[in-house]
Simulated scan of single mutants.
Amino acid sequence: MVTHLDRPPGHSTTAADNLADLASELQASVVGASRAVATMTEANATARRFEVVAEAIDAAALRYWRDLRSYDAIATIRAAACRGAADMRAWQVAVEQSERRCEAPVIGTVDAARAVWRELSPRRPGL
């Protein structure tokens, strides 16, 4: 996700700095899921370790929707851009576009995790 690249030089706002921190936290959740997947080497370990993966995916998805894409989060970025110079508006647009590009991978990852849980869950007759 783009947070620093398009920010105009000399423009440091609390909203922009907070956004960068939130993006870093989201990336850390994704790294946590990747590391947990990398530790799964045998089929029976998959079920035990997948809970860690699913928790990291859930944390990343929550951060994405709550901290980056919610009405309040977007309103904060837009307000900061309105208070800043004209080049801050370009930064705000770039950030929102970057956030939208993350939407499909976030949804796809959550859906994939659910599919794995369905595969790992014991089959119950009649359900």
Rank of each mutant, 00 (worst) to 15 (best):
A43E: 13
A90I: 09
R49M: 07
E42L: 09
R114L: 12
L26Q: 06
G84N: 04
A85Y: 04
Y64R: 00
E103Q: 10
R101Q: 15
S29D: 15
H4T: 10
D21L: 10
E99T: 12
M40D: 02
A73E: 03
S34Q: 15
R49L: 10
P8Y: 12
R101T: 15
G108W: 03
P105C: 05
R7M: 11
R66W: 07
G84W: 07
D17T: 14
A33G: 09
M88V: 10
L5F: 10
R83W: 08
L127G: 05
A45Y: 09
H4G: 08
G32L: 05
A79P: 06
S121Y: 00
L62R: 12
S121R: 01
A61P: 01
A43K: 11
A45W: 08
R35H: 14
E99A: 10
Q92C: 11
L26N: 03
S29P: 03
C102Q: 11
D111W: 00
V116W: 01
E42Q: 15
A79V: 01
I57T: 03
S34P: 08
L19W: 08
A75V: 04
V106R: 01
R89G: 02
M40E: 07
R78W: 03
A16R: 03
R101H: 14
M88T: 14
L62I: 08
S34V: 10
A23R: 06
A15T: 09
W91T: 02
R78V: 10
V2W: 07
V95S: 09
M40P: 03
E96W: 02
V52S: 06
P125R: 13
A113Y: 02
I57E: 02
A47D: 05
A86L: 14
R63F: 06
A59F: 01
R118G: 00
V95P: 08
R49C: 01
S98W: 03
W91I: 04
L22N: 08
S34H: 11
E55H: 09
V30P: 02
A61I: 02
P125E: 14
T3Q: 12
D67R: 05
V116P: 01
T41L: 15
L26M: 14
T39G: 10
A75P: 01
A16W: 04
E51Q: 04
V30A: 15
R89P: 00
A73Q: 00
N18H: 12
L26S: 03
T39Q: 14
E96N: 09
H4K: 12
E103L: 07
P105E: 03
R49V: 01
P9M: 11
A16G: 15
R49A: 08
R114D: 13
I77E: 08
I57S: 03
I57Y: 00
G32I: 02
T46Y: 09
W91S: 02
M1A: 12
D58I: 02
R83T: 11
R114C: 05
L26T: 04
W65K: 06
T46N: 05
T3P: 05
T39Y: 07
E99I: 08
S70K: 02
A33S: 10
A112Y: 04
V31R: 10
P125N: 12
